[in-house]
Design a protein around this nucleic acid. Sequence first.
DNA 1: CAACTCTATTGCAAAATGCAAGTGACTGTA
DNA 2: TACAGTCACTTGCATTTTGCAATAGAGTTG
Lengths: 115, 115
Amino acid sequence: MNNKMPFKRSCCPITNSLDILGDKWTLLVIRDLVLGKKRYQEFMASSERIASNILADRLKQLEASRLVTRRAYQQKPARYEYVLTEKGEGLKPVLRALVVWGQKHFPSTKVIPTI
Amino acid sequence: MNNKMPFKRSCCPITNSLDILGDKWTLLVIRDLVLGKKRYQEFMASSERIASNILADRLKQLEASRLVTRRAYQQKPARYEYVLTEKGEGLKPVLRALVVWGQKHFPSTKVIPTI
DNA sequence: CAACTCTATTGCAAAATGCAAGTGACTGTA
DNA sequence: TACAGTCACTTGCATTTTGCAATAGAGTTG
């Protein structure tokens, strides 16, 4: 299930960003991380109902891209929490721009105060 | 090939935005439109080498989502150009945020002055 | 010890993507 | 008037990704 682009599509910064972020789920996981969620069940509980295999895949890709670090918060059983790196935190302006545009053009959507 | 989400995944503005923009090509077509490209061959000529069926599909979706309007610029044969609507223009801040993030984290990428 | 939680993984069907080739309506050249 | 060329797509088909449901493994709780 996991995959990677083997070559650069171009030297455009937008293209390179989309090679990591360009799907329907990755930025939603990052949104949840920005909102303070850290654990699997918290991501699963979001209203978009991500499938567990997709979530596992996206968390691996985010770790591989160094947007997120995985840290054990307990042993026995080993349990991990996911936290944004500085690179991942740097996506807040992208999320904010999407919130602004989304709120303007989808009137039924709600405010997310903390992004 | 053409498709649509039949229902809203959630009332989150980010989610609603990603339901339109969340793939590897849509925002690149919008980037090209922002850069002033209007015609099929111009989009095809971009360095990411989009496949023609994908481009046709994305242009249809963009029109259906009212981010783009299609206008005949000649008859015989009928030829159309694509122009951003105000809704589409409103995505410039999203593109700018992606440029900033991309340029910071992919050092080999180049500046795009006019976005 | 049986049920339950949490974090995944697996199998399989459905949808999206990528690639190459083809089409239809013309235009420009020999 | 053939004939190649351009432009804007469309089609067919193989590959890849996604979505859904079920299952698993490690431990906890009643």
